[in-house]
Simulated assay, not measured.
Amino acid sequence: MIPTILAWEQHLAHNRRRSVHTVRAYVATAHRLVVFLGEHWGGAVSTEQLAGVTAADLRAFLAFRRTALGNTSAARELSAVRGFLDFAVGVGATPRLRGPRVKRGVPRPVSPDEAVALAEDVAESAAEPWLAARDWAVLMLLYGAGLRIGEALALTGAVLPLGATLSVTGKRAKTRIVPLLPQVREGIETYVALCPWPIERNVPLFRGAKGGTLDAALIRRSVQAARGRLGLGDRTTPHALRHSFATHLLGRGADLRALQELLGHASLSSTQIYTAVDAAHLLDVYRNAHPRA
């Protein structure tokens, strides 16, 4: 069974181009499933036996896992199980099973003033000027260009010198071109000028205090501390800045297809969630401003 899981891991990483985190999570699910089936069936599980997995077996596995998972995580677990069984046994051989109902959350954007205030507070709390410039540049890439935190930290010195656009590699190694606002470009250039570490083409653009790769957890912790000082909600995270970028563009008339390209979404359905954000915002304006609301 281990060779099958290893082959599944290679398939996810190289053929499907899944992220390291996704591969790790899906492989862990495959291991959990095999261990569970071994105990459930009372013996070692072979690849051939996986063809005999029934809907009842899958329901039993999910019931076993539900003590540790919410609806969203359970749905992801079932998706990983389906993918593994389809790979091991053959597409279409896995019994279909309705997953848990997942309520799709609507992103909570922050206002432009809040986004800038958050970035300023994070920068002002930095220990050194070059670290302040770094944190400001990273957060401005999230809000001003719609990058994911991982995409911003994956940039290398090859993006220099900066132009009017930036080439970004996102999920599944998909590359997209995003425009750089003058303020965002100026923020990055200021950081580059102050950074004490040489920024070569093949090294990370954003460096840690000791010259290594900047850890996303550090940015998240800085944002968490800043939102507490500013009185912002718990959902004000680095990713919320990307949501805000999308929502504000949509509110100013951006086309959904264009927004899909800017965000690097694989499908339009992923982008359409922002229409709900805009509608919710309009409803809030109506309720707060209309005399008969």
Rank of each mutant, 00 (worst) to 15 (best):
S269Y: 04
A246T: 07
K171I: 11
L268C: 05
R287E: 15
P3D: 07
P107W: 00
A258R: 06
R16D: 00
A127T: 13
T94Y: 00
R229G: 01
A127Y: 07
S73T: 15
L142P: 08
A240F: 06
L97N: 09
P112M: 09
T4W: 01
L268K: 07
R65C: 15
R104W: 09
S73K: 13
E151V: 08
L282T: 05
L282M: 10
W197L: 02
T67W: 02
D121F: 02
H290M: 10
S19C: 04
L268N: 06
A80K: 09
H31N: 07
E77H: 08
H239E: 00
V27F: 01
Q224G: 10
A137C: 06
R176T: 08
P182T: 05
L85I: 12
R17P: 05
R287T: 07
L166W: 06
G208F: 04
G233P: 05
A13E: 13
L131F: 01
A293S: 15
A266N: 03
F245R: 01
T47L: 03
D215R: 08
V27H: 01
R172P: 03
A13S: 12
P129A: 07
F206K: 06
R207E: 02
T169Y: 00
A217M: 09
T72C: 10
A145L: 03
L256M: 14
V138R: 02
D255P: 09
T47S: 14
A173H: 13
K103M: 05
V102K: 12
A63N: 13
L78C: 10
G105W: 10
R221S: 12
A28Q: 08
Q183I: 09
D234Q: 08
Q10G: 12
E9A: 14
G157I: 13
N71S: 15
F36I: 09
A132Y: 06
A145V: 08
S73H: 15
R172S: 11
A56D: 15
G187Y: 05
V110P: 02
R252P: 02
S167P: 00
H21F: 05
T165W: 05
Q10R: 15
S79L: 10
R201P: 11
G163V: 10
H281N: 05
P291Q: 11
G70M: 07
Y274T: 06
R134G: 02
V122W: 06
K103H: 12
E48G: 06
V53R: 04
R16V: 12
L250Q: 03
E48I: 07
A56N: 12
L160P: 04
P107E: 00
